[in-house]
Design a protein around this nucleic acid. Structure first.
Length: 731
DNA sequence: AGCACGCCGACT
DNA sequence: GTCGGCGTGCTC
């Protein structure tokens, strides 16, 4: 039944956080004033959800309505997403081929609770602590303070209110003494320029100049490990803050950057706002609103920090620009680095990409003049670059009687010599657990995950087998699950736990520590290892990828890469690039202080260009070779790629849809479709997966091609087709 | 995403 | 005859 028509009634279009691509229309409550960006609650089916006003209110069409319109339930005064957030959501939706409502869902789910809160005065020394209801003692302080807002001396306030200094300090932290605290906060920040090298100063000045222009500009800050890139962009942060703008620093794997945080605090005297997936819901809520009101000045975070509703963003820094972990692979699939450039463009602000090993995409953008390259040539403080040598593992003869070993005699000798000099060694093996594969000596059974196409990895620390794709674990079986023979299961290949075992046997008198995500579950545990390493209490540190990033150990002079070939296999288009970046980074751990470093790479393919480039130190020659390979094959960054992943619980249906997709494949000059093929990891969490790959030349808009392709026939809702624009993973 | 509607098998 | 399985499709 149509509602009674009232020509004076207004309606408004509201975007709801569901996978739909357009807003819905709601009647406006009598007297309510709404604007684009306002957060409102509306009913969808039987549920109440938070939505965002997408278009200014307009009069209800007097024509008879076919839809029974509902009414906006609540409005939340002052909670209005900035126009640029809305534009950014729209842009990301179009680029990633994700429904607009799904993007909104991601943006508002960053608040964790769906309860909107009223805007609050949020000030804090570092964290955005929200006003709390004051206690009697605090009320006394507030009364005094309100009577005399000029009361600047904390000492006097304490004395006259008769409270402890802790009470006043806490109140300042909690923003209960706003005027007082505002001046305190401003005085806490330390903005003056610290001494920098000539190169650093030049780069910093250049970035700061672009901040004054207030226009979109992308810069690559390119310099080897230890060249002082962080200090350079810290100066740009200081400048942006002085101009009253917000700054976003994107870092990969934020949990690991305790060292980064302490450098920031040392430079600025205050902590930045830290955003990552594991902060508490309360903190999340507060910080989300502090970003919205502009009170959060510097936000440092992982990928999702990009989608916070910045009121006044003036600068973006993407540190470790080349890192693959900026690519979000679950839910909305996007590359935070690329989206950050788009966000900077929308906001007409500068963005700085920072790395020692630029990605090919970024280098190409520099060559074409879209990005500006700022180069920091020298290692700051004159530390020597490490000597890199390759150990050809094909030459290593092993006695049959000898127990299995993963360390060549050369590397063992180097470890012994290094530790004898009271210096530290690090062994790098990017493989968690004890052994990547376990098989039965009697029947040949290989222990695999029941719901994925992958082997179960033996973990000694908890005596379990684990699937590294879905997390499925079982306790280690006493007998073969297939032939039931007892004691026939043998580990194959090394993981870091097994390497640890060997090192303990070789060097029983030395202190050996292991570092992998399995045991380093909290930043506290990580910090303990880092501190022990700094204090020289660890002789040999064994670790996976988590150890490769950004730690500085002055006593570390030897890095051994146990299997440099890991990662080079597997048909991934970025395999070489990524391995180069990772090994380069690992190698950069050695010899940061006055001692020169030594790096040994164990390999079965010493002639591989990646290893040759590492040894010769000729990064640019390697990049040129890699780049010409990509160009010849029209691969990114020279061509565009998108993957379609068909998944579902029914194997035959998934295959059928994949084949139908292939039959409807787009055709044309510069368009190629590969597949379908079962995904390399054909089954994950019980879902079957098939893949197709679309490759086009750069003149095509790959999103339009895919939209037309998917619209060309009906896909049954029992299966799902995911689109991955610019894929990094080819599983 | 969630929720309802709908069309076929085992139950009070 | 109904309860409930989850396949299909819509949500202002």
């Amino acid at each position: 039944m149509a509602l009674p028509l009232n020509p004076t009634r207004l309606v408004v279009d509201v975007l709801v956080p569901m996978p739909v691509n357009r807003p819905y229309t709601y009647l406006i409550l009598e007297g309510a004033v709404l604007q684009r960006g306002d957060m409102v609650s509306v009913s969808v089916q039987k549920r109440t959800v938070i939505g965002v006003v997408w278009a200014e209110p307009y009069p209800l069409d007097p024509q008879p309505q076919t839809l029974r319109l509902k009414t906006v339930e609540h409005t939340f005064e002052g909670v209005r997403l900035p126009e640029i957030s809305l534009e950014f959501m729209k842009w990301v939706a179009a680029y990633t081929l994700t429904p607009l409502g799904t993007i909104l869902r991601m943006v508002i789910s960053l608040r964790k609770t769906l309860e909107p809160i009223a805007p609050q005065v949020v000030y804090g020394m570092s964290s955005c602590d929200v006003l709390q209801k004051p206690s009697t003692a605090r009320q006394k302080v507030i009364a005094l303070f309100e009577a005399d807002p000029q009361l600047k001396s904390r000492q006097e306030l304490i004395h006259r209110a008769g409270v402890t200094s802790a009470v006043v300090k806490k109140m300042i932290e909690m923003g209960q003494l706003i005027a007082h605290e505002k001046s305190t906060i401003d005085s806490l920040w330390k903005f003056e320029t610290i001494p920098l090298s000539a190169d650093q100063t030049a780069a910093a000045h250049h970035i700061c100049e672009t901040l004054h222009q207030s226009e979109f500009h992308t810069m690559l800050l390119d310099g080897v490990t230890g060249s002082g890139k962080t200090e350079v962009y810290f100066e740009a942060i200081a400048e942006a803050c002085k101009q009253g703008k917000q700054v976003l620093v994107l870092l990969p794997e934020i949990a690991l950057s305790a060292q980064w945080l302490s450098r920031f605090t040392q430079r600025f005297n205050v902590k930045p706002e830290v955003w990552h997936s594991e902060i508490s819901p309360a903190k999340r809520q507060k910080l989300w609103h502090a970003v919205l009101t502009g009170q959060a000045r510097v936000v440092v975070g992982a990928r999702s920090a990009l989608f916070l509703p910045y009121a006044n963003l003036g600068l973006i820094v993407v540190d470790e620009e080349h890192e693959a972990s900026f690519k979000q692979e679950k839910g909305v699939i996007y590359n935070a680095r690329d989206m950050a450039v788009a966000r900077a463009h929308l906001g007409q602000i500068p963005i700085v990409l920072v790395t020692a090993t630029p990605s090919l995409e970024t280098l190409m953008n520099c060559e074409s003049g879209r990005y500006e390259r700022l180069h920091l040539p020298d290692r700051h403080g004159g530390a020597l670059l490490p000597q890199i040598e390759v150990i050809d593992m094909r030459q290593i003869q092993r006695q049959r009687s000898e127990p299995q070993t993963w360390l060549s005699p050369q590397l063992r000798k180097a470890i012994a010599e290094t530790t004898a000099r009271r210096e530290q060694a690090m062994l790098y093996l990017n493989r968690r657990g004890y052994a990547p594969l376990t098989l039965c000596r009697s029947c040949g059974e290989r222990l695999a995950c029941p719901s994925c196409t992958s082997w179960l990895v033996m973990h000694r620390h908890n005596e379990r087998l684990m699937c590294h794709h879905c997390g499925h674990t079982v306790s280690f079986p006493q007998q073969c699950p297939k032939c039931e023979a007892p004691d026939t299961l043998v580990p194959c290949g090394p993981g870091i736990e097994r390497l640890y075992e060997e090192v303990k046997i070789l060097f029983p008198h030395l202190s050996v520590e292991m570092m992998a995500s399995d045991t380093m579950t909290s930043s506290q545990k990580i910090n303990m290892v880092i501190e022990a390493m700094h204090a020289g209490q660890i002789d040999i540190l064994i670790g996976t990828q988590m150890m490769a990033k950004g730690y500085h150990f002055p006593g570390l002079t030897l890095v051994g890469v146990v299997d440099a070939d890991l990662g080079l296999s597997g048909g991934d288009l970025r395999a070489s690039e990524r391995t180069y970046q990772l090994l380069h980074q690992v190698a950069g751990r050695a010899g940061r202080a006055e001692q020169p470093g030594q790096v040994m790479l164990q390999t079965y393919m010493p002639e591989h260009p990646v290893l040759a480039a590492l040894v010769s130190g000729d990064r640019d020659q390697f990049l040129e070779l890699e780049s010409s390979n990509r160009k010849a094959l029209n691969l990114p960054p020279y061509g565009r790629l998108a993957a379609l992943i068909v998944s579902g619980t029914e194997m035959t249906l998934v295959e059928k849809i994949a084949r139908t997709l292939a039959r409807h494949a787009p055709r044309g000059e510069g368009i190629e479709v590969f597949g379908p093929a079962p995904a390399a990891l054909a089954r994950v969490r019980g879902r079957y997966r098939w893949r197709l790959l679309l490759k086009t030349t750069r003149n095509h808009r790959i999103q339009s091609i895919i939209s037309a392709w998917l619209a060309s026939f009906k896909i049954p809702s029992t299966a799902r087709v995911q689109v991955d624009i610019d894929p990094y993973s080819f599983w």
